[in-house]
Simulated assay, not measured.
Amino acid sequence: MTATASTLPGLLLLQGEPRRVGSWVARGTVPAYVLPVGGWTAVVAAGESAAKAPYDDGLTMLANRPVPHGFRGSVGFFSIDGRAVVVVQRRGWRTIPRWLVWEPGHGAQRVHGLSPLRSSDLLDVVGVAPEETQTLRSLLRSTEGESLDLLRDLIDALALPAGRMLSGSGVPTQPDATLVTPGERDVARFERVVGEDRAIRAEQEDLS
């Protein structure tokens, strides 16, 4: 295990060997701990993104990062700006991420451009005991509590063994946790690509 760092309130669970997942993390912009847990490989953000604004929020970047086919099904739980965010991608080549964006006092919110999460998506990726299915659906319809409370309740209902990792509890000291820090070249490549995309969009707007 490498030197310890603080963690952010988010957890991404992937299929795949920790070594391969670690290589994927290293090609991104967000430092993170990578460790095996209960048949999954967990990725826990260990700080903010190394990219410049508006791509400097570590949890937002990790939640939005496309998951390679070989690491699906995947499920992520994040507390971002007081909201609970859950993103699930089922197995398969042409599956799309599905999202739950939940706000205290209001419940699930539809967000333009994001496909809404269904309970069947969670059941397909994670599986759940039949007696917990109604509990899961009730949680997805709830409006009470805070974002971390909802995320922990969802993790418990899904019988995932990683609830304690949501707050980073004990992650840095786990003997099989590896802190992966993206390289400067990978961060620079990301910024170059998004810069080119912005330039193309600006040109298209000028021509419209």
Rank of each mutant, 00 (worst) to 15 (best):
P66H: 11
M61P: 01
G82Y: 05
V86C: 11
G92E: 05
F78A: 03
G73C: 14
Q109A: 07
F77Y: 06
F77M: 06
P66M: 12
N64G: 14
F77P: 01
S120F: 01
V87N: 12
P68F: 10
I80G: 14
I96P: 08
S115E: 12
S79G: 11
H69K: 04
V101H: 09
G76N: 07
A63R: 11
V85G: 04
G70Q: 10
V88D: 11
H106M: 03
P104M: 02
D81Q: 15
R90V: 01
D121E: 06
W99H: 07
G105C: 07
P116Q: 07
G113W: 10
P66I: 09
Q89Y: 09
I80C: 13
P68C: 01
H69C: 02
P104Y: 08
P116L: 04
V75L: 11
W102F: 13
T60G: 15
V87R: 15
H106G: 00
H69V: 13
L100A: 07
A84C: 09
L100C: 04
L114N: 12
Q109G: 00
S115A: 15
S120N: 11
G92F: 08
P66Y: 07
H112N: 09
H106T: 00
L100P: 08
L100N: 00
L114I: 01
L117E: 04
F77W: 08
R72W: 10
